[in-house]
Simulated assay, not measured.
Amino acid sequence: MYFDQIQIVPTTGRHAEQVPKDFFYSRVIEKNESDFQEISPQEEFNKKVRKLVREQREQIGKELEEFGEPVSTVAQDVLFAEEQIRVGFPSRHPQSAGNTTKYTGEQTEHPVLLFVMDERDKPPHRRSEERSDKFKISILAKTSEDGESFIGFFANEIHEISTYVGDYAEAKELTYDGEIVHEYFDKKVKESSNITDWYLDEENNDFEDEVFDSVCELTGIALENVRIQVDVGDNPDFDAVALPLGGMGTGYAIEVKDYSQEDNDAVDESPSVSKDSGELRSELIRKPKDYAEQADLQLITVVRGLSEEQYEDLHRLADSSNVALLNEDNYEERLSNMLFEQKLREMSEFVV
């Protein structure tokens, strides 16, 4: 399974004073209405409640007919007081064109789910300092190919719509995939007292490439070889950064270390057998964790070339430090759990 996200900032055209945040989302769905289906258990429940109340009111009305007016009508109002029958789920954003939607069109092999995301109703400690003008749509696809195809299709639809509604609304910003990570670090530079700049490095080895490929099978919101510049201390680099929910919730800095020497001339690290446990703990846990926290990211370390005993000892230390230490045998399964399954549960905090 695969996560991605589209972030849209609409702005008014020459002949409009205000444009809804969900304008382009709604227009794309309307333009391709046969390919989209709203999934709203709250609305279905409300429909059933309204139908039941209507039927019961009619039935009570028949039983009270013999009393005549105005007794029968007043009795109905007493039995069905408004404040007593509002038992449905409230709709927090009734203007939206469907806050959870399924796409079944020909652009993808399998259906794709769309979730409208927002932080406005979250507690202050989980809310961004500034309320964003972005309209955020998280994409859940069965495969990375479906996710990438859908993102391309949806972005093209927005560009096409923009060409004929430009007098009313324009897509001021349209970001997705790694562009969202770019914006994340640009924002960190503006907000942080210690991070002064960031850029993409080019250093990597085969194992780093393998790990990043695994990350990209789970989310498109990722970049490799990110280096940040800081006022104080070393300038840390992250072999990969992944933001499965587009900066909402937990994001990850991924450190990849390869201590194996066989058939790998590109390995910079000396063999793990030549390092004591303190050195390995510093390289795999303490230093990269400090670096990740400077960017408000949680650390995942993927390591190859440790003995089973070394890995088990360091794994216990990593757990106690809230660091995920993965090895060559389990990193794909564990990355899937952290970048997809855990994010799927965490996403419920942000779905509108």
Score class of each variant (00 low, 15 high):
Val215Leu: 04
Ala295Pro: 01
Tyr25Val: 04
Glu119Ala: 12
Lys136Cys: 05
Thr11His: 09
Ser214Met: 06
Leu200Lys: 13
Asp118Gly: 10
Leu314Met: 07
Thr175Val: 14
Tyr164Arg: 11
Val189Arg: 13
Glu183Trp: 09
Glu255Lys: 03
Thr101Pro: 02
Gly178Lys: 14
Met1Trp: 04
Asp201Met: 06
Gln84Leu: 12
Arg281Thr: 11
Val226Trp: 00
Ser277Met: 15
Pro70Lys: 08
Gln37Trp: 08
Asp118Gln: 12
Arg54Ala: 15
Asp35Arg: 05
Gln84Thr: 09
Arg304Thr: 09
Asn327His: 12
Lys142Glu: 15
Arg120Leu: 10
Gly249Tyr: 10
Pro244Val: 06
Ala324Phe: 09
Glu83Gln: 09
Tyr184Ile: 10
Lys31Met: 11
Met117Ala: 09
Ser270Leu: 08
Val267Ser: 15
Phe45Arg: 10
Glu224Cys: 00
Ala171Thr: 08
Glu279Phe: 08
Pro10Asp: 03
Asp268Ile: 11
Pro236Leu: 01
Lys134Thr: 05
Gly178His: 14
Val74Lys: 15
Gly68Gln: 04
Glu283His: 06
Asn330Ala: 07
Arg120Gln: 07
Asn327Ala: 00
Asp209Trp: 06
Pro123Ser: 13
Arg334Ser: 09
Glu332Lys: 15
Val165Pro: 00
Leu317Gly: 01
Gly220Leu: 01
Ile60Lys: 12
Gly233Ala: 05
Val53Ser: 03
Tyr25Arg: 04
Gln107Arg: 02
Pro94Gln: 05
Thr101Trp: 05
Arg334Leu: 06
Glu341Asn: 11
Ser282Ala: 13
Asp237Asn: 11
Glu346Gln: 05
Glu293Pro: 07
Asp146Phe: 11
Lys289Ala: 07
Gln294His: 12
Asp206Ser: 11
Ser274Glu: 12
Lys134Leu: 12
Gln37Ser: 15
Ala169Gln: 03
Arg304Cys: 10
Gly249Met: 09
Gly246Cys: 03
Thr104Tyr: 01
Phe207Ser: 00
Glu173Pro: 09
Ile221Ala: 03
Pro41Lys: 00
Gly249Asp: 02
Gly68Asp: 01
Tyr311Trp: 11
Gln107Asp: 00
Pro244Cys: 03
Gln5Asp: 04
Asp329Glu: 15
Phe340Met: 04
Gly88Lys: 07
Pro236Trp: 01
Lys188Ile: 14
Glu157Gln: 15
Tyr176Thr: 14
Ile195Trp: 03
Gly247Asn: 03
Val189Gly: 11
Asp77Leu: 09
Arg92Gln: 08
Pro244Arg: 00
Phe24Val: 05
Met117Asp: 06
Asp263Lys: 12
Leu317Ser: 12
Glu55Lys: 15
Gln18Asp: 07
Asp167Glu: 14
Val49Glu: 12
Glu283Thr: 07
Pro111Phe: 00
Glu148Thr: 13
Pro123Thr: 10
Val351Ser: 02
Ser277Val: 11
Lys136Arg: 15
Thr101Phe: 01
Thr11Asn: 08
Leu344Lys: 05
Gln37Tyr: 13
Asn330Gln: 03
Met338Ala: 07
Val181Arg: 07
Glu346Trp: 02
Asp268Gly: 04
Ala222Ile: 04
Gln37Cys: 01
Arg345Ile: 02
Val215Pro: 02
Leu284Cys: 10
Thr12Phe: 01
Leu114Met: 12
Glu109Asp: 04
Glu173Cys: 07
Val78Ile: 14
Asp276Ala: 05
